[in-house]
Write a protein that binds this DNA or RNA. Structure first.
Length: 369
DNA sequence: CAAGGTTTTCCTGATT
DNA sequence: GAATCAGGAAAACCTT
């Protein structure tokens, strides 16, 4: 329960972030422009615009889903002022969320945190987000970030943070180089058959058969993030003797909400693992070396950096202990449902089955028009 | 609230 | 020996 007394800390922290010079995010990423360029066009004609002052608000002109925590706070304070709301009744410890998280808040949740202002926030937010239906945005963001991460190498994680694990996580993932969120889905779920670009076959031949796991993005930091209560004990942890089978119980809902700013760990409707995988494959310009098509026509693909993909999946599900091992178990369940077909004898190779869709070239091309 | 669906987590054993 | 693959079990969490 992050104490409310840290508001000032929180703010100073955020504002320093906020005014830091870098804000690379979307704007400068050419890849993002490749697909969804139209979707990403900003509609600035909304009523949300901060009174056109000399300085534009940090959050303006950017999809709420992509707001950084600082921008979220900025927007909130803008709304508070605009509505002449008494900010003292707001529990700012619960404002510790990025845009994606904010967008996922139900009206009741907002009301809980912001009181009567919550409804106002919700509708304003809805106005803003509804102009950006791009449901792939989260993956774009993730991929962008990770590709950057590969180049820049993450610095040491700040473990001394007084904030919750969620914050740590953000600090790590969105650390200096990555402001903004790794948006996990906006309030507009809808299942994805969105596929735009996605040209054909892989890229770099460099992968030959390294069988994944040269992962430098080693975010396999469950070690670093063993927050109390979160299932972290991996692989049987002999110290604790035999653990019970099955999925370990997590934190109580309340504590979780507190830590995570209320986000479900499960994917919103339509974002299943296989779709996640498919979407990565469909955007080779972004996934750069994570996975590749082995046979585009047949739907055969291969993990090049298995652990990295797993981490990405984990990020999407807000689960930093995801591993390829677990991901692959989920993949294997798809065999029975014929979403995937078995490819014998080839490691890290899978094939889309008849119950999958949206990956075929025709489909991809079709959905573009 | 109950069911059913989709993971997630663990585990053991086999293969590569 | 380390990674993977295979599946069974069971729990978590979500949607209906």
């Amino acid at each position: 329960m992050a104490a409310t007394c840290e508001i000032s800390n929180v703010f100073s922290n955020y504002f320093s972030t906020m005014y830091s010079p870098e804000e690379p995010a979307l704007a400068s990423v050419p890849a993002a422009a490749t697909f969804g360029a139209e979707d990403l066009v900003l509609t600035l004609s909304n009523p949300q615009m901060p009174l056109e002052g000399p300085e534009k608000a940090s959050w303006s002109g950017k999809q709420p889903q992509f707001w950084s925590k600082a921008q979220v706070l900025d927007w909130i304070s803008y709304q508070v002022e605009k509505n002449k709301y008494d900010a003292s009744s707001i529990d700012f410890s619960r404002c510790d969320m990025d845009g994606a998280t904010l967008c996922n808040c139900a009206p009741e949740e907002l009301r809980l945190v912001f009181g009567p202002l919550g409804d106002q926030l919700y509708s304003q937010l809805w106005d803003l987000t509804s102009s950006f239906p791009d449901e792939l945005s989260w993956i774009i963001e993730l991929l962008e970030k990770d590709s950057m991460a590969f180049q820049e190498t993450l610095g040491p994680f700040d473990q001394g943070s007084p904030f919750s694990q969620e914050v740590l996580e953000e600090g790590r993932q969105a650390s200096p180089s990555f402001p903004g969120s790794y948006g996990t889905g906006a309030p507009s779920p809808g299942s994805s058959d969105v596929s735009t670009a996605g040209t054909g076959t892989s890229q770099s031949p460099h992968s030959s058969d390294s069988g994944g796991s040269d992962v430098d993005l080693d975010l396999t930091d469950s070690k670093l993030f063993s927050r109390d209560g979160f299932p972290d004990y991996k692989k049987g942890d002999p110290k604790h003797g035999k653990r019970k089978r099955g999925r370990p119980r997590k934190l109580s809902k309340e504590s979780r909400e507190c830590l995570e700013g209320k986000r479900s760990k499960h994917a919103p409707r339509g974002t299943h693992l296989w779709e996640f995988i498919r979407d990565i494959l469909l955007h080779p310009e972004l996934n750069e070396g994570l996975m590749k098509w082995e046979n585009r026509q047949e739907g055969v693909f291969k993990f090049l950096r298995s652990e990295a993909v797993a981490q990405l999946w984990g990020q999407k599900k807000r689960n930093n202990s995801m591993t390829y091992e677990k991901l692959s178990r989920a993949m294997r369940y798809y065999y029975k449902r014929e979403i995937l077909e078995r490819v014998d004898g080839r490691r890290l190779v899978y094939k889309f089955g008849k119950n999958s869709s949206g990956w075929k070239e025709e489909e991809v091309a079709g959905s573009r028009n």
